[in-house]
Simulated scan of single mutants.
Amino acid sequence: MISTILHLSEGLAVRALVAGQGTPVLLIHGVGLCAEAWAPQFDAFAADHRVIAVDMPGHGASDRLPGTPVLADFVAWAAQVIMALDCGPVAVVGHSMGALIATGLAVEHPQLVSCAALLNPVYQRSAAARAAVMERAAQIAAADFDPEAPLDRWFDPEEGELRMLTSQWLRQNSPEGYGAAYRAFAAGDSVYAGRIAQISCPLLALTGANDLNSTPAMATALADAAPFGRAVIIDGHRHMVHLTAPDVVSQELRNWLVPAEVSS
């Protein structure tokens, strides 16, 4: 695995971890995490794919987006990343906020996306759920937020080692970068929700059965709205399913990749 810095047209730096050769797979993590959160997927795919995991803007060693970015700005950023890598179209895998970005890519830039996998996606939150996430965004912006709080929602008690590792990632991020991304995430679930039917590539919507925020109902509704959508619910897992059930998730990702690779 090689760590490299990409430079986008606006001068923004993007850190990427790259390994392997073959069909390109782009991995976009969720808010507060980093490229290293995809370690199990590197292990599963780098032997026969070109795997690229990026630090999202304002996370890890990637520059923040200017101003007060919204989800569409993160989608435009991801499109520039693919063009800078000169490897499109890619199979794009996004987790949580990364799933919103992957959705936007498939809608706005279909020529850059061969297939899209949305892990623990949010989709058309209820009014109460939207209010709760907007409140958390406000707390982060005011630097009045416990970075341990999400971990209680993301992990079961027996997943202590993964929880500790994720806590380290959360604490490494700048409050500004974390806050900007979370604001976009909080307001982003409805941005492309009405355009899912435009996604013409294979789409996988996968979540944990016990994920209270990216619920099985959301994943199922999202997949049903896509012409070539499929929902997968992993029993006994929560929001960090790609870490807590890596073998199951990697097998589902292989199943999702096959149609796109055959058609290409």
Score class of each variant (00 low, 15 high):
Ser190Ile: 12
Val248His: 04
Ile5Cys: 05
Val70Tyr: 03
Ser126Ile: 11
Asp146Glu: 14
Val232Phe: 10
Val54Asp: 05
Ala223Ile: 00
Arg153Gln: 14
Glu108His: 02
Ser200Cys: 11
His95Pro: 10
Asn210Phe: 14
Leu17Gln: 07
Ala205Arg: 04
Ala128Glu: 15
Val90Phe: 05
Ser3Asn: 11
Val70Asp: 12
Ala184Pro: 15
Ala132Trp: 15
Ala197Val: 04
Ala78Pro: 05
Asp63Ser: 06
Leu206His: 00
Tyr182Phe: 14
Pro121Glu: 09
Ile234Phe: 08
Asp63Arg: 01
Met164Val: 13
Gly88Ser: 05
Ala127Trp: 10
Ala47Val: 09
Ala142Gly: 02
Ser3Phe: 09
Phe45Lys: 10
Val90Cys: 12
Phe228Ala: 11
Glu158Ile: 14
Gly98Ile: 12
Ser263Met: 04
Met134Trp: 14
Arg183Gly: 09
His239Asp: 09
Gly194Asn: 08
Leu222His: 01
Pro157Asp: 10
Arg15His: 12
Leu162Ser: 06
Phe145Lys: 04
Ala117Val: 07
Gln139Thr: 04
Leu257Gly: 03
Arg171Cys: 13
Val133Pro: 10
Thr207Phe: 13
Val14Leu: 07
Gly188Cys: 03
Ala16Arg: 02
Pro89Leu: 02
Tyr123Lys: 07
Val232Ile: 11
Ile52Ala: 14
Ala260Trp: 11
Ile5Gly: 07
Val75Tyr: 00
Glu135Tyr: 05
Thr103Arg: 07
Ala53Ser: 03
His95Lys: 07
Val122Pro: 14
Phe155Asp: 03
Ala53Tyr: 10
Ala142Arg: 15
Met83Arg: 08
Leu165His: 08
Gly32Arg: 00
Ile52Arg: 05
Gln139Gly: 01
Gly188Tyr: 00
Tyr178His: 08
Ile233Gly: 05
Pro202Gln: 00
Gln251Leu: 06
Gln80Asp: 11
Glu176Pro: 04
Ala205Leu: 06
Met134Arg: 09
Trp169Met: 14
Asp211Ser: 09
Trp38Ala: 00
Asp152Ile: 12
Asp55Lys: 00
Asp48Val: 08
Met1His: 11
Leu206Ser: 01
Leu33His: 11
Ser114Lys: 09
Leu17Thr: 06
Ala99His: 02
Gly194Trp: 13
Ala186His: 14
Gly58Leu: 03
Gly104Val: 01
Ala16Glu: 03
Val93Thr: 02
Leu71Gly: 02
Trp77Ile: 00
Val93Trp: 09
Leu119Ile: 13
Ala184Glu: 10
